[in-house]
Amino acid sequence: MLLIVQIVLVLAVILVSFVLMRGGANARHLAIRRIMLMIFAVAAVASIFFPHVLTSLASFLGVGRGTDLVLYATIVSFFVFMATTYQRFRHAENALTALSRRIALDEAPKPWADDRR
């Protein structure tokens, strides 16, 4: 039973990370990321006041202590953060490339214009 829960958990983590990594900057993915962040924040606050709740949730999911659960959630959110930052970086780089190319081409001499003279 425990093994099955763990496998399902791992699959869910991989799936969610993948969806969030592949999805670009569209509104739906942004909303999902914000919901996840909110759940994470609520859980963090809750764990301060009711530490045993998190622990019992963790033992229900089969991952040991509540702190372990928080650790796993942190790892996942870190990966998601890394992936989205990478994508944002790629977008910025593409924009910078287009801009630089425009400048380069505009400044370049165009020798074929001489043909018409």
Partner: peptide
């Protein structure tokens, strides 16, 4: 040669 110059390294 005609030189086309990128303003930064790309």
């Amino acid at each position: 040669a005609v030189v086309v110059q990128h303003p930064i390294n790309l």
